[in-house]
Structure formats: structure tokens, C-alpha cells
Simulated assay, not measured.
Amino acid sequence: MLRRAGRAAVLAVVVLAALSGAVAAFDSDALTQVDVETDSTTLNVDVGADGNASWEVVYRIQLDDENRTAAFEDLAQDVASDPATYRGTFRDRMERTVAAAENATGREMSVRNVSVETRRESQPQGEYGLLVYRFAWTDFAAVDGDTVEVGDAIDQFFLDGGTTLSVSWPADYAAESVSPDADVTNENEVVWQGQRDFDAGQPRVVLVPEDQAGSGGGAGDGGDGADGGDGTTGDGTSLQFVLLLALGAMLVASAVWLFVRESGMSTPLDGDDGTAGAAPAEDSGDAPDTGADDEPDGPPAELLSNEERVLRLLEDSGGRMKQKAVAEQLDWTAAKTSQVVGDLRDEDKLDSFRLGRENVLTLPDVELEPSGPDDEE
């Protein structure tokens, strides 16, 4: 019983650590090694003007059958009888996660006031059991005078399909900018829903005192800030004019790109091997031009979905590749790679097998040569 609950606690901290980018110390396979399966996760981050943040991590388990209900009741009983074990495990792993963020940001950080509880909650979809961790993360956000910038400690966050990230702030502050656009925006809160893969420099929320919001043309309430109320920006420039300029630039860029593609010229977008876009070699006349490189091999990588990028990488590698190498070549975290690979495996678009301590990915129905010891570093 305690073992089951302990492994559920490990799930909580491993998921949080993976989402925060500190995945190198964790095995993503551990995410599936639990008896209590969660249905959704909510990460609530309440940021103060001093940069400290109160975190609440809520794991929901739908109690839709006897087995899941009994498993949650076992978990709740174990947490109630030995909360110190759960708090200690969570604190230890969070401290390693926060240490990684500390190194990335250069700010001293700490984990404080860890607590854990379980409870039940009735929702329109049915009855849920909740496993809830709370803790304080000091210096989570960067503070410069009255400005608070949230997000550098969790740069390039990855939310899986069942995870929601909520960032809230004091009532006397306002969001000057939010990147990327949130799925839900309230007066003092923004919410992003998974599945979502934040880019470098994301997520970000820049907060300023409410009386300063919009004074510099930022994201204010439209009173005296970015929108002057008469269709102009703060410096009198027509908003319509600014939008037209932006649209015109996009159209020009698209036209140039199409012209280059149609004319057969190489561009930095052609191919994924980094050789396209280089100066063409002079024609020696020794070999005829076959025209093999005239057409790109499929669309540019940036126009592909995550799943398509993995499949293209496998095709270019002869149908077989180590999962670790996929993560390295695509510059993804282990957690993100595991999520995308799992989706492809569920759709029968790729297979996988263990080779020693490595996970090897293969395309279905591909005949592979026997692997040697030097294959796939």
C-alpha cells in the first residue's frame, strides 16, 4: 500500500521536474511506473511583487470504477498516516529542479514550506480524487525596480495534453506583456493549456504596477496606454497603418520565398542537413546535372509537426535511430521526446525496442541490417 502511494508521489515530482526543464537527472520511463494513474495536472503559480511564488501542483484522478477508487483511498490513507515521507521526497526532487533553474538564471533560489494533502472533488464529469502539493519558490521571478518578469526559471516549458499552467499576480499589478498568447486571460491571471511546447524565451509574463500599465505603450487596458482611444498608438501613429505595414512585410517575404522556390534556387530552408543555402559548387563539366537537388525533400522542418519531424529524422537515418539521438538532434528535452514518441507509437507509426539501456526507434515494416557496436551514438 505504501509502495503504491510512494510511487504516485514520485510521479508528481518527476512530472514537475520534467516540465521545468531539469530532466537530465530523471528517467522518463518512470512516468508510467505508477499504480494510481492521473487524468490531469494543474500547475498554479501565484507570483508576488518580490519575485517569490507560491506553487500548487494538483493531480486529478477520476474515480470512475472500483479499482481506481480503491487505489486513491489507499493513497489518501498513506499520505494521512505518513505525510513527512511524501513532503521529503517531493522537497528533495524539487530542490534539484530549482538548483537547475538557479544555474540558468543566476539568481539564488530555494524551496520552502512544502505540504501535501489529498481530497475529493465533485465535477460535472464525475467524482475526482486530488493529490495536492504546495510549496514556496523564492526568487522564482526576476525583479527590476517595480517590474516583475515571470518565466525565465521555467524557460521552454513543455505541457503534455493533460496539463494546465496558470500564472496569477497581485491585484495592484497588471500584465504589460504575455508571451505566447494565453488560452485564457483573466484580470490577474493567464492560463496555458497543453499540449503546448514553449519556445526559447517562453513563457513570459511582464508585470508592472497597475498605475503604470500602458503608460509606455505596453499591454494596458486601452485607456491611456497602447491604444489612445482614437485608433492611434501612444505616439499618435495609426494602428491601421501599423497593421498594414506588418501585413505588407509578410506578403513581400512570402512572395520572395515563392520566387526563390519556383526558380530552383537553394535557400536556408531546403533540407535539414545544413548544406543547403551554401554557395553552389562550380560546374566542372565532368558529370551531367541530374537535377536531383532541384526540388526540396518535403516541406521545411519548421512547417512540420513534432510527429512529422521525428518520422522524417527516422527516414533520413535509414529507419532506425536511438531515442536519445532524436532528442539531441531536435534539441528537445527527454520528456518532450518521450511524449511525441509515445503518440506515434500509439498510432502505430513507429516501433521501439530496448538495446541495453537505450530505447531504439524504428519505422514499421522496415528491414534493418543487424546493428553493430558502433551504430547510433
Rank of each mutant, 00 (worst) to 15 (best):
L251R: 05
M250F: 12
E282W: 10
A301S: 07
E347C: 02
V14Y: 12
W137T: 02
E210V: 00
Y173V: 01
G106T: 09
A171H: 12
T97V: 12
A49V: 05
G277P: 10
F90D: 10
L313T: 09
D365E: 14
A226M: 09
T185A: 13
A276Q: 15
R309W: 03
A100R: 08
A24N: 06
E121P: 07
L350K: 01
L130T: 00
G342C: 04
Q339D: 15
D297F: 03
E149D: 15
Q62T: 11
L243R: 14
T290I: 09
A18K: 09
V36P: 11
F158G: 04
D272W: 14
G229W: 05
R357T: 04
V208S: 00
V184P: 06
E347H: 04
L31T: 11
F135Q: 09
I61H: 06
E315M: 02
D144V: 03
D272T: 15
E189V: 03
S40F: 13
G318Y: 01
D365Q: 10
S284R: 13
L239H: 09
F259H: 14
E377I: 14
I61Q: 06
A174R: 01
V184A: 10
A278F: 09
L368Y: 00
R196M: 09
F353Q: 10
D286L: 14
A76G: 06
W169P: 00
D181K: 08
T362K: 00
D197Y: 15
N359C: 12
V114Y: 05
L368S: 02
D199V: 09
T337W: 02
W332G: 02
E95C: 11
